[in-house]
């Protein structure tokens, strides 16, 4: 027994010696990693401890750790309102439309752009269709406003006037907003989304097309049987990864573009805008943190599932 203990100790010593040796040998690399490790700790790990706020009756005076516990009170509060259902439905439904419609348009752009032979024109088109993505949502909100402003906006003063339709108070009418938001989001993101497919297209082996031409395949048949199947792997992976983020609303889009118009909340409120309003405007930290916690948990589950699926399809693309 004594010898066993000694042996254990020896193994342990040897291990820690090996560890220390590795630390010394690679100290330069370890030092390199310090700054980013600290940043990740501050920006990601500390807030994880902050998740306990959802189970507390928090106040600024006592801070995160000394505020009294409240159990599931915050969650009971959140799910007793119809807000919980509304924000979940809006977030998921909008994201589904963004993901699928966005992908179809992005792929179409990529395929069409690939057919343009004039390199100068090609570059020109690509630059212009990606441009909206580099405008912040604040600027996008201004652009939408310049069309929809009820008094001076281009829609009411020019387009609707020409069509003899009475002006519409856009920011008071929820029925138009699903379309406005979807259009805005697609405008902002489809060009950018096509980049990845354009890159995949340039990687397709040209022999495939040559063989198809010899077999007498038309351009349309080539697209259907060679191009789209070649893109399908990337398409599936993009969809799955996006589904992993389905509970995260585009805060900028839903917060800036409808200009916080209360009349529109029914169709514009997503989890992220709700959390923001509860936290900053209503100062209801409990409710905000419960909604945030709910989002974090659903988000984690979705990402893990998404990754499992991606792993099955293409191990290279999986995150873990």
């Amino acid at each position: 027994m004594d010898t066993q203990l000694k042996l254990d100790k020896k193994i342990k010593d040897a291990r820690s010696r090996k560890f220390m040796k590795a630390v010394v040998k690679y100290k330069a690399l370890l030092i390199m990693m310090i700054p980013c490790s600290i940043i990740l700790f501050i920006n990601s790990y500390l807030p994880l401890f902050g998740l306990i706020i959802a189970f507390k009756n928090i106040n600024y005076k006592d801070g995160i750790f000394r505020s009294p516990w409240s159990g599931l009170e915050n969650f009971r509060f959140l799910f007793s309102t119809d807000a919980a259902w509304r924000i979940t439905r809006n977030t998921i439904a909008y994201n589904l439309v963004f993901i699928f419609v966005g992908m179809v348009i992005s792929v179409a752009i990529a395929i069409a752009l690939n057919e343009i032979r004039n390199r100068y024109l090609k570059k020109c088109y690509q630059t212009l269709v990606i441009l909206p993505n580099f405008l912040s949502m604040v600027v996008v909100a201004y652009i939408v406003y310049s069309f929809l402003n009820p008094e001076q906006g281009y829609m009411n003063t020019t387009i609707l006037k020409k069509m003899n339709i009475t002006p519409i108070k856009w920011y008071d009418e929820p029925i138009y907003w699903p379309y406005i938001l979807i259009l805005t989001k697609l405008w902002h993101s489809v060009g950018y989304g096509s980049i990845i497919y354009i890159a995949t297209l340039t990687g397709i082996d040209s022999q495939l097309y040559e063989a198809a031409i010899i077999d007498g395949a038309s351009k349309w048949q080539q697209t259907k049987y060679i191009t789209i199947p070649s893109l399908s792997g990337m398409m599936i992976i993009s969809i799955v990864l996006a589904l992993g983020n389905i509970i995260k609303g585009d805060f900028g889009l839903f917060f800036q573009v409808p200009m916080s118009s209360g009349l529109l909340y029914g169709v514009t409120d997503v989890v992220d805008t709700y959390v923001y309003r509860a936290l900053i405007t209503l100062q209801d930290i409990g409710m905000a943190s419960a909604a945030g916690f709910y989002q974090s948990v659903v988000g984690l589950i979705m990402v893990v599932i998404a990754n499992l699926i991606v792993r099955k399809i293409d191990k290279e693309q999986a995150l873990f």
Binding site: S44, Y45, G50, Y276, I285, G299
Partner: peptide, 20 residues
């Protein structure tokens, strides 16, 4: 990887940045 998977969300980040 953990930072990509788990997120504290706005409220927790806000409280950390403001109070801590």
């Amino acid at each position: 990887l953990i930072t990509l998977l788990f997120s504290g969300g706005l409220v927790a980040s806000y409280m950390v940045n403001v109070t801590i």
